[in-house]
């Protein structure tokens, strides 16, 4: 609420966001985190494509998930918009890829960055928050029938190659 109306006062805002994202890109390139990638879509830097590997010993093990990240002019004082591009069956992600995660909403802090967001999402895969699900069936099955849950995860999953082929 706050930042949207304030953005106009800062003519240099766009440059600052780009600088910050440049720096994050440098960090990611210099110190890559295993299981996580992120790269800007174009020179504009405001849209990125990221991937996270499903954590081991979870239903998402050995799966790779593609995400889109979009950074507004008030980043890092407002969270980026993050969506799963890979179809995913998960209690806190809906079928359009929208994610329910507090740090991407009201718990966002300016100290978070692309790396911490992706790590949080990775851990969300293994530890869903079943008390406020976007996908009620998934939350239910997670507790009751893990085998069925795994089946549905795999049924829904597409590899990055399949996604590219489908031009998504």
């Amino acid at each position: 609420m706050a930042l949207s109306s304030g953005a106009r006062t800062n003519g240099s805002g766009g440059a600052t966001v780009a600088q910050r994202l440049q720096k994050e890109l440098m960090d990611i390139m210099m110190k890559p985190t295993p299981g996580i990638t992120a790269f800007p879509d174009d020179e504009n830097m405001s849209r990125w494509t990221a991937t996270i590997d499903g954590p081991s010993s979870t239903p998402y093990e050995n799966l790779v998930f593609k995400l889109s990240m979009e950074f507004g002019p008030t980043y890092p004082y407002a969270p980026p918009t993050v969506l799963f591009k890979t179809p995913i069956y998960h209690p806190n992600v809906d079928f359009s890829g929208r994610i329910c995660l507090d740090i991407l909403k009201d718990k966002w802090s300016a100290v978070y960055n692309i790396g911490t967001v992706l790590l949080s999402l990775q851990s969300l895969l293994g530890e869903p928050n079943n008390s406020s699900p976007l996908n009620g069936q998934a939350a239910d099955l997670w507790d009751k029938d893990m085998d069925e849950f795994k089946r549905l995860v795999l049924a829904r999953h597409k590899t990055p190659e399949e996604l590219d082929a489908a031009d998504l």
Partner: peptide
């Protein structure tokens, strides 16, 4: 303090 970038950075800093 009326520059959104500077002002938000300083606010974030004092919060930290």
């Amino acid at each position: 303090f009326n520059d959104m970038g500077v002002s938000m950075a300083i606010i974030t800093y004092v919060k930290l």
